[in-house]
Design a protein around this nucleic acid. Structure first.
Lengths: 220, 220
DNA sequence: TAAAAAATTTAGATTTACCTAAATTTATTT
DNA sequence: AAATAAATTTAGGTAAATCTAAATTTTTTA
């Protein structure tokens, strides 16, 4: 089966939004897809027909096993193309997302599997996100503490070490949470504190102690 | 400006059909695009609005300078992607056309220029067709006689040597014409005749004398 | 818990790119 | 040149993916 780019975008958006176990709401989807809630409702009915998701009026939506499989293939394509653009065509990692949004809808499975081999079967895309394999399995990346990573490499917060209320209070204040994308810009040798840059926010400094309690994905 | 994949396909088809100086007919386009003449008429009106082509009812159509520029960019993309698929991803040259039909609609100009550099600025695609450069200039490939080429390399007939009626008569019979795609499968040392395979046709044999009068593009 | 607010759905349109069938224009034959 | 055939266009529709405005359902709040 083949799906329109529009349908693929819905499937992908639902996949990303349904992490938190609850059903995905019509409004959340409309927002993620930059469209109107009424349009979302229309499309959900069609995707339900195709058994790609479970949907009940007013109850939100959730992908079926089939839907997840499709989502993972699209994500695989997106991330492999991003890797190609950065590693082979010298693009900066900030500029590849938009192009990959188009490339992810190219249908050939053979193409993407060949591309995967050509690239040496990378596990992570340039943003640090894991790349699903040809069977749709998403590798679980090793977590290491933010304290130990290289400068200027984009990373995603994937875990919090010592989940005390005190730590949570500080995280709240700094607005760091699971899924936050950030880079370490500098290490200050005076107290080993780190300068952090999160997307759409001014850089700020965190202590080494906090950094040790923030886990990011890494590997190799 | 950006055009839908459908519009791009019309532009490309017109470009390929208008070689022979006459206007391109609605029927020829419908046939090339596997659609109905009525649909073609609809689309031609829209493309005329956008100054991409000159069109008068019942008189056929011809690209404007702007239209040709767009066509050459699409052809550039198509052929560079084909080259990539064959040279980097180990596809056979017969299987890349379909995939390139999708890839040619990816919009990023920067992407295609980077890809061009990555591939080493090739002049010909895997089928032997010339690749337009970043300015839309199509290189004129050197013509050499069919007698002199390697076995099993796809070539296109780009010229006829000695245009006598006698030669033309023979070409008519063998169905070889400018634009024909073919491969030389074998050379027979007995009389230096060649076994030729054209797409969608049974292989046949031509004399060395005929082969010397058929020009194909080559280079490198 | 009833009223107000927010979220969601339905109803009815719009645009793009198609289609079929009928009408019109151009080309070809007798 | 009139008649026939072929090519092309027009008229009227359809499906996909949107939209706005109005109606409905759910959630929140006073």
């Amino acid at each position: 089966m083949k799906y329109s780019s529009s349908k693929e975008n819905y499937i992908k958006a639902i996949f990303h939004l349904q992490r938190s176990s609850e059903n995905v709401s019509t409004n959340a989807l409309a927002n993620a897809l930059q469209t109107k809630p009424a349009s979302v409702t229309d499309m959900l009915k069609k995707l339900k027909e195709q058994k790609i998701l479970q949907y009940e009026r007013y109850k939100g939506v959730r992908l079926t096993a089939e839907g997840k499989k499709i989502a993972l293939l699209i994500i695989r394509k997106h991330r492999l193309w991003e890797y190609f653009l950065v590693e082979k065509l010298q693009f900066g990692w900030e500029e590849v997302h938009e192009i990959a949004e188009e490339l992810e809808h190219i249908s050939s499975k053979k193409l993407i599997d060949r591309l995967d081999d050509f690239l040496g079967n990378p596990r992570k895309d340039p943003h640090g996100d894991p790349i699903p394999d040809a069977n749709g399995k998403m590798p679980v990346l090793q977590q290491i503490s933010l304290d130990a990573i290289e400068l200027n490499k984009p990373m995603e917060i994937t875990g919090i070490g010592n989940q005390t209320p005190e730590l949570m209070e500080l995280l709240q204040r700094t607005n760091i949470k699971i899924g936050s994308k950030l880079e370490v810009k500098k290490k200050f040798s005076f107290d080993n504190s780190l300068e952090i840059k999160m997307r759409n926010a001014a850089p700020f400094i965190i202590s080494q102690f906090l950094a040790k309690n923030l886990l990011v994905n890494d590997e190799e």
